[in-house]
Write a protein that binds this DNA or RNA. Structure first.
Length: 424
RNA sequence: GUGGGUGUAGCUCAGUUUGGUAGAGCGCCUGGUUGUGGCCCAGGUGGUCGCGGGUUCAAGUCCCGUCACUCACCCCA
């Protein structure tokens, strides 16, 4: 085989594509009810946008981006995440002038060059939403509550919301110094990647999977919560308060830090035990400095992103996506004159909003009926030259196994009538 | 970048230990009296056994290499 899919990409086949459409429409509907507005941004941006926002030392930027130089010499990158492009759009189009607080959402493809595995691809999809313009804790709570509501309405029960606060930028910088000095003397006891991270991004030590490193952290690392300012703590308390009011169950995870540098104060993650190794289905948090870091006015914001492939893995397991419901009318045709008449009726009936199809293989009636059965047609119109001469068409109801003769003039109305009849 | 697993028909997989003409189920196509689906029955279509080399009279099977896919680590959604 000469041409094959690029590693880490996927073909969505007919048997699966309708599920994606269903899911996207479902998500869109709920987010619109919450008054979020859909936006789309280009698939590529200046590389700089991502290195500045996500952070140069993060894995995403340092080793996972699809970057290239275009013919004019610009450094471009296929977006590895969507918050930075959305914020760039917000700044460039002066969306702050529309209203002080703006709520946006997106459903789009992202690209990261990682080793693919279950629930993780190189081209993958996220939907996410952002509330830009307010620092207040009810917006943090709304983001989390909205995401939980989407999952719940999709029938997902097995969720865990993990919540933490890593403080404002000032208190976090102080904490990083505290952490640094507390761990300095024990540095050699940590694993090599942790030692490396102590230099570059010490907060990420909390991500380490090694039990011995975690034990060391439990013993020697001061909790981040102790370094939070009074304002930070109040904010965190209020986020929890609003979550309780909204009825969202959560647990505080003191070690939850995130891989992107721009987060401040609230960070959270929702996991599902149905996913296995890659169990985070969405992640997000507050990013109060990103807008100004990218050149806009100082503007607080909070947002979340959900991995759609992982979401689909869960939905496949709990099997909640309803089957497609379009009723098919199949035209079984015998003979030249009949074929022309059938094609004419076929076009007319489609204009009336009916899903209809006719045989294109010129096969025997038996084969056509088999085909109609296989495609789960509700009605089959049998049109032969005999019928055309006598101005009649046989209309068979496949569920009931009954058929009747209808005149050519009445066929469209009769089909519409039978399709609208309530099933028992 | 590191480690494990798997590559045989459109799909799911037997066959590899012990070398001897390429298999099953599902799917697809056709038929089971004149022009009627599902169930059943019969027939048919379909494969450079991932690719390249080696050993041998003979390789899907043994040896070497290589590629691809996949799961896990790292990281992330």
């Amino acid at each position: 085989m000469k041409y094959k899919r690029i590693k880490g990409t996927r073909d969505i086949l007919p048997e699966e594509s309708w599920k994606w459409q269903y899911l996207e429409q479902f998500i869109t509907k709920i987010l619109e009810q919450n008054n979020y507005n859909l936006v789309r941004t280009p698939v590529f941006e200046m590389t700089d946008l991502f290195t500045r926002s996500i952070g140069e030392e993060t894995d995403v930027v340092s080793k996972e981006m699809y970057s290239f130089t275009d013919k004019s010499g610009k450094n471009l990158t296929l977006r590895p995440e969507l918050t930075a492009p959305v914020i760039r759009m917000y700044i460039q189009n002066n969306l702050n002038q529309i209203s002080p607080v703006i709520k946006l959402f997106y459903i789009d493809s992202l690209f990261r060059q990682e080793r693919p595995q279950k629930g993780r691809y190189r081209q993958f999809h996220q939907f996410g939403f952002e509330i830009i313009g307010t620092p207040h804790p009810e917006s943090d709570a709304e983001v989390i509550q909205t995401m939980v509501a989407i999952y719940t309405k999709l029938g997902i029960r097995d969720l865990k919301v993990k919540l933490n606060s890593i403080g404002s930028r000032d208190s976090r910088n102080k904490y990083l110094e505290t952490l640094q000095s507390a761990l300095e003397q024990h540095k050699t006891k940590f694993c090599s990647t942790c030692q490396d991270r102590m230099e570059k991004n010490i907060l990420r030590l909390f991500d380490c999977k090694s039990q011995s490193c975690q034990d060391l952290l439990d013993e020697f690392a001061p909790p981040i919560i102790d370094s939070l300012s009074v304002e930070d703590r109040e904010h965190f308390t209020q986020v929890q308060n609003f979550l309780k009011i909204s009825g969202v169950d959560f647990e505080v995870d003191k070690k939850l830090v995130r891989g992107l540098d721009y987060y401040t104060r609230t960070t959270f993650e929702i996991t599902s035990s149905l996913l296995g190794a890659q169990d985070a289905i969405c992640g997000g948090g507050r990013y109060d400095h990103l807008v100004e870091d990218l050149g806009g006015q100082p503007t607080p914001a909070v947002g979340v992103a959900c991995g759609m492939e992982r979401l689909m893995l869960i939905l496949d397991q709990i099997d909640t996506i309803p089957a497609r419901k379009n009723k098919l009318v199949y035209f079984a045709v015998l003979g030249e004159n009949a074929r022309e008449k059938a094609f004419e009726i076929l076009c007319k009936i489609r204009n009336r909003g009916v899903t209809a199809e006719m045989d294109f293989m010129r096969r025997s009636l038996k084969s056509q009926m088999r085909n109609a059965g296989k495609k789960e047609a509700h009605l089959v119109a049998i049109i032969g030259d005999n019928e055309i001469e006598e101005n009649r068409i046989i209309l068979k109801n496949m569920k009931l196994g009954k058929q009747q003769e209808v005149t050519v003039e009445n066929i469209i109305n009769e089909i519409l009538k039978q399709l609208n009849e309530v099933e028992v």
